Simulated assay, not measured.
Amino acid sequence: MVYIEGLTVEQLISLSAVSFFAGVLNAISGGGGMILIPSMMVCGVPPINAITVNKFQNALGSLAAIRHYFQHGLFEKKGRNRTTLLLVSFFSLMGAISLDFASSKALLSTVIPYVLIFVSLYSVMPQKWFEKYTKRTVSTFKKNAVWSFMGAYGGAVSIGTGPLMIAAHRILNVSSVRSAIAETKPMMLVINITSLLLLALLGHLWWKLGLVLAFGNMLGAWFGARITTGRYLVIAKWVVFILPLVIAVRMLLEG
Rank of each mutant, 00 (worst) to 15 (best):
S176C: 05
M1R: 07
A182Q: 10
H204V: 01
G95H: 05
H169A: 09
L86R: 07
T83C: 06
V177L: 11
I235S: 09
L233G: 14
T228Y: 03
L93A: 02
T52N: 06
P126I: 10
G32E: 09
A59K: 03
M165K: 04
R226N: 14
V9H: 07
S104V: 12
V177R: 04
W129M: 13
Y133K: 10
G95K: 09
F141I: 15
L107A: 12
K105G: 10
T84C: 13
F241N: 10
H204I: 01
N49K: 10
K55Y: 08
I181Y: 01
G220T: 11
V212L: 13
S179V: 14
S139T: 15
E131P: 06
T83H: 05
E254G: 00
E5I: 01
I166K: 05
F149Q: 07
G160E: 03
K237D: 09
G23Y: 07
F141M: 13
L85V: 11
Q127I: 15
L99Y: 06
L198P: 01
S175R: 10
V111C: 08
V53E: 01
S16G: 09
K237L: 03
L25A: 13
F149K: 04
F130K: 02
W147G: 00
G255L: 00
K208M: 05
L196G: 03
V18N: 07
F141K: 15
E254V: 15
P113W: 04
M94Y: 02
V177E: 05
P46R: 08
T84W: 04
F101L: 13
M1C: 03
S16K: 04
T140V: 10
W129C: 01
I37L: 11
V146P: 02
S195P: 02
F90P: 02
L253T: 10
V9M: 12
N192I: 10
L245W: 11
V138W: 12
T140S: 12
E10C: 00
R170G: 06
Y69E: 04
F20M: 09
A248R: 04
A106S: 14
L36T: 13
G79I: 02
I13S: 06
R136L: 10
A152R: 03
W206G: 02
Y153D: 02
T84F: 05
S89G: 13
A167T: 12
K185R: 12
L63F: 12
S89N: 08
L60N: 13
D100K: 14
F141V: 15
